[in-house]
Simulated assay, not measured.
Amino acid sequence: MIGVLVTFTATGKFDRSTLEKIAGELRGPFEGMPGLRLKSFMLDEDGARARNFYVWDDEEKARAFFTEEIVEKVTGIYGAPPRIEFLDIVGFVDNSGS
């Protein structure tokens, strides 16, 4: 498994309701996406950074998703270019089935 942390840093602050709308509108394409275990849409405490966290089954699928076209698209959606970090998941707890 591999995690991907995508961070958008605002010049001011992100509006929570706008990010909730973005999350709602973008949820559909990720549901059932092959290789994607989960995706979360997050906002940090001070509102300066929006973060998306992905957990993928394998690195190849994760890296293949983040094309130049995707980066360009999300830059337009969030109004800031993303910082994309690939993280090796060395342990995982999933309580969703309990």
Score class of each variant (00 low, 15 high):
24 G>T: 07
50 A>D: 08
66 F>I: 07
12 G>R: 02
28 G>A: 13
57 D>L: 07
26 L>I: 12
83 R>P: 12
8 F>L: 06
97 G>S: 13
5 L>E: 12
65 F>K: 05
70 I>K: 09
66 F>N: 02
90 V>L: 04
42 M>Y: 04
45 E>A: 14
62 A>R: 01
40 S>Q: 13
75 T>K: 01
60 E>R: 13
63 R>C: 07
41 F>I: 02
67 T>N: 11
64 A>V: 00
89 I>M: 04
50 A>Q: 01
40 S>P: 05
92 F>R: 14
69 E>G: 09
64 A>E: 10
68 E>T: 11
32 G>Y: 03
8 F>T: 06
71 V>Y: 11
29 P>D: 11
73 K>G: 06
63 R>M: 06
89 I>L: 06
84 I>P: 10
68 E>L: 11
70 I>P: 15
57 D>S: 09
84 I>C: 04
75 T>W: 05
81 P>T: 13
71 V>L: 14
73 K>R: 07
81 P>F: 01
94 D>T: 05
7 T>W: 03
64 A>N: 04
51 R>V: 11
89 I>P: 05
84 I>W: 02
26 L>E: 14
31 E>K: 08
98 S>M: 14
98 S>W: 11
13 K>R: 14
38 L>S: 11
60 E>D: 15
33 M>R: 09
44 D>E: 11
69 E>T: 03
6 V>D: 08
21 K>H: 10
24 G>P: 13
84 I>G: 01
17 S>T: 09
61 K>R: 11
